[in-house]
Structures are given as structure tokens and as C-alpha cells.
């Protein structure tokens, strides 16, 4: 009978005692097996050679790929900044719409995620190709003819595919909703009376924004930045499809070591470990800004 007893401590928890913690135990074992051990394996592989002996060689090899690291970080950073510049105003404007309009637009923003990510990216290929739809459109409206007539050049198409720009576009396209949604969900929760109070105290609309709304929406901005940056820095499909293999990124490098031509899981694990460290650094820097707020995960 005592097992049923609930304690009325301040935490609001309805049950105490080992009996009531038990439902979590299967998952604790699951996490140990499929979350903790795999990460330990990555570390072990990163510090061993194929004969199983300890080595730092894998990390020494990584310096050969410094350019890939640099490119990955740069492209992901640019994509994140573009997402923020585009996504914040959209989220802000959206929060001012009527209730039902807001719901419909949020639904519309989430809906593309239901189309396979590979296909959405592949579809951009049809748009960006040299003989693709955008180039056909530009030719049809006579843009190339006009330019050629004026400058005496012989432009047939605008090179868009297989450029860094195309890779950035792919990142922005795929991850923009991850920026809009967390920012939006924070902005709509801002207490209207706080804004009114600022107005009553004489703040004009730009003051209200910079001193009240923006600081209060910071936690959304921070989860948005992480939710865009992490997948961007680790992608390997966008670069393959839209970069045409000329813009190898960290993700491609890892994939090649595990499933590709350059089979070397030890090097792959070393690169993965460094990427994990990048993610952790990114998270902790972001959390510092967010004043330790709990991670908001939105879908």
C-alpha cells in the first residue's frame, strides 16, 4: 500500500519512489546501447589505426582537408545568416496576422517538409541547370539577347548549378522553416501588455522592437540558428546535387570514408569527432546567449 503513497512536495510530481521511476529504465538501457556506446565507438575509432593500435595519425591526416573544413563552415555560416535575415521578418510579420491566417501560413511553411528532402533539392536542379527552367525563362524574355546586343557578348545561359551559390541556396531553401518556426513561436508568446507598457512609457515602434520584442525573441533566434547551422555544416546531399561534386563539404568527406570510394572509417570517425566538437561549441556559445534557456524543439 505504501507504494501508492504520493508525496506532496513542491515539484508537482505525482509519484515518487523507485517503483515510479521504473518506466524510464528500458529507455535508459536503450540510450546506453544506442546513443552512448556508438559515440564512444566514434572516439575509439578516431584514435586507433586499422590494426587497433592507438594513433593520432587520423587527426594528422585531417589537415589535408583544411580547405573542406573552411568551406563547410563558411557556406553554413552564410546560409545561416541569410536564413536569419529572411526568416526573422517573416516570423515577425506572421505574428501580426489574424489567428486563422497565421495557422494556415504556418501549415504552408511546414508542408514542404513532407516532400522528400532529396526530391525538393533535385527539383532545384531542374530550375538551376544551364538548360533549366530559369535559364529558359530568361532566354524567353529575351534577356540574353538584350545583353548580347548591348555588349557584343555571346551569353547563352547563366551559370547557376554547380556553384557555391547553388549550394547555399539549397541550404537556405531546406532549412529556412527551421529558422522561421522557432522565432515565430517565441514572438507570438510575447505578452501584449509588455509591449503596451513600453508604448505607454513613450517608446516609439522602433524602440519597442529593439528594446522589447527583439530581446524577448532571442531564445527563438538562438534555436533557429542552431537548427539551421548544424544540418548545413553537416549536409552531404545538397553539395552533391547542387554543387555537382565540385564543392565537397565535411559531410561528403565523412560519407566517402564510410560508404564511398575512400573507405577508411578511422579517418571518418576522426572527422566526425571534430564535427561533433564543432556542434558542441556552437551549442554552448548559443546557450550562453540564450541565458541557459531550455532547448526549444519545434516541428
Amino acid at each position: 500500500m505504501n507504494g501508492h503513497k504520493t508525496t506532496s512536495n513542491g515539484n508537482g510530481h505525482f509519484l515518487r519512489g523507485i517503483y515510479h521511476r521504473m518506466p524510464a529504465y528500458p529507455y535508459v538501457i536503450w540510450m546506453a546501447l544506442f546513443v552512448v556506446i556508438p559515440i564512444i565507438l566514434v572516439v575509439v575509432y578516431a584514435f586507433t589505426a586499422s590494426d587497433g593500435k592507438f594513433t593520432l595519425n587520423n587527426f594528422a591526416h585531417i589537415s589535408d582537408y583544411a580547405i573542406v573544413f573552411g568551406r563547410s563552415l563558411l557556406l553554413a555560416l552564410i546560409a545561416t545568416i541569410i536564413c536569419l535575415i529572411l526568416g526573422y521578418p517573416v516570423a515577425y510579420v506572421l505574428s501580426k496576422f489574424g489567428q486563422s491566417t497565421q495557422r494556415i501560413i504556418i501549415m504552408l511553411i511546414m508542408l514542404p517538409m513532407w516532400i522528400n528532402f532529396l526530391l525538393r533539392t533535385y527539383s532545384w536542379m531542374s530550375l538551376l541547370e544551364n538548360t533549366g527552367l530559369i535559364n529558359r525563362f530568361l532566354a524567353a524574355i529575351g534577356l540574353f539577347n538584350l545583353i548580347n546586343n548591348i555588349f557584343g557578348t555571346d551569353i547563352r545561359h547563366l551559370q547557376m548549378i554547380n556553384t557555391q551559390g547553388a549550394v547555399i541556396l539549397g541550404m537556405v531553401y531546406n532549412y529556412l522553416p527551421f529558422m522561421i518556426l522557432p522565432i515565430y513561436s517565441v514572438i507570438v508568446k510575447i505578452d501584449k501588455s509588455v509591449i503596451e507598457a513600453a508604448q505607454d512609457l513613450g517608446a516609439n515602434s522602433s524602440k519597442v522592437f529593439t528594446k522589447v520584442i527583439f530581446p524577448l525573441s532571442l531564445s527563438g533566434v538562438i534555436s533557429g540558428i542552431t537548427m539551421v547551422f548544424v544540418p548545413s555544416v553537416s549536409t552531404f546531399i545538397i553539395s552533391k546535387l547542387l554543387g555537382g561534386g565540385t564543392q565537397i563539404l565535411l559531410g561528403d568527406l565523412i560519407e566517402m570514408q564510410f560508404l564511398g570510394s575512400a573507405y577508411n572509417p578511422h579517418l571518418g570517425a576522426a572527422i566526425s569527432l571534430i564535427m561533433m566538437i564543432i556542434v558542441v561549441i556552437c551549442m554552448s556559445v548559443m546557450n550562453k546567449f540564450g541565458e541557459g534557456e531550455e532547448q526549444t524543439v519545434i516541428l
Partner: peptide
Amino acid sequence: VINADIITGVS
């Protein structure tokens, strides 16, 4: 959730 998908997959 936080980790890059590729690392979850690889590990």
C-alpha cells in the same frame, strides 16, 4: 536531436 544526422548515422 541536437547532433548532426550524419554523426548519428555513422556512430
